[in-house]
Amino acid sequence: MDSPSAPRRGAMQGDDPVLRGVVEMDETYVGGDPRPRNTGDDDAGDDSASGRGGGSRPKGRGTAKPLLLTAVELGGSVHARRIKSHRTDAIAPAWRAWIDPTAQLMMDALPAYRRIGQAHPSHLTVNHSKRQYARTDVDSGERVHVNTAESYHALLRRMVVGVHHWISGKHLDRYAAQAAHAWDHRTRDAATLMSLLARPAEPLPFRALTT
């Protein structure tokens, strides 16, 4: 169950500034496998049936985990939201809302990203399927990667593992906003961060939280 601090998480959903300059886009699946059900048989030796060890659950695009889209401005803010698929029509609304048309995009070779990138004056890609994670662009001399976006994903995963242990797909956007707030304000002083406590937030009824 999501914690009673959900309204505070909602308060961390900021004003969504438009991202400019160099902007990285990437996506990731969020959430671990569910804990194996206890069958009561302490002597059972077959881990594959319980979901341990054998690892029969699909990963990547075959998984049932929720998919998170992230865009981060180098030296600036990060935006993230849950999307339904890797298709252009699922990614485009966030792209239009988040990113200035003049921004330079850096992304992987996902077909939807290539189509979106064509609307920008510059978009550079790396091909993760060919184990290419960073390169120097021959024409511009720029270093191309999505490592900054992946750093945000790492922050979110550590938050889940170290604090929440499990999060629901329904409230993924709230947790992503919490991680984005931590990212955006990582260099602020304590007094500025404490001002979050005075920020108004709509109450989240228990029924809305759990149904």
Rank of each mutant, 00 (worst) to 15 (best):
139 D>V: 06
163 V>D: 07
37 R>Q: 10
170 K>L: 11
49 A>L: 11
15 D>E: 03
184 D>V: 00
168 S>R: 04
39 T>E: 09
168 S>T: 15
131 R>N: 14
139 D>T: 14
26 D>T: 06
16 D>N: 00
112 A>G: 15
193 L>S: 04
43 D>A: 11
67 L>T: 01
124 L>P: 06
171 H>M: 06
135 R>D: 07
9 R>G: 08
108 D>M: 00
82 R>V: 14
169 G>D: 06
182 A>H: 01
80 A>M: 08
125 T>P: 03
66 P>I: 06
12 M>K: 08
108 D>L: 08
178 Q>N: 00
193 L>W: 00
25 M>T: 02
159 M>Y: 14
58 P>N: 13
144 V>Q: 15
90 A>E: 07
36 P>I: 15
131 R>Q: 10
9 R>C: 12
125 T>G: 11
191 A>G: 10
138 V>H: 12
19 L>I: 01
41 D>N: 09
171 H>R: 07
174 R>W: 08
72 V>K: 15
98 W>Q: 14
126 V>L: 00
82 R>L: 13
2 D>A: 15
146 V>C: 10
83 I>Y: 03
12 M>W: 00
155 L>C: 07
75 G>I: 02
140 S>T: 13
206 F>Q: 09
7 P>I: 02
141 G>V: 12
170 K>C: 07
113 Y>P: 04
67 L>Y: 07
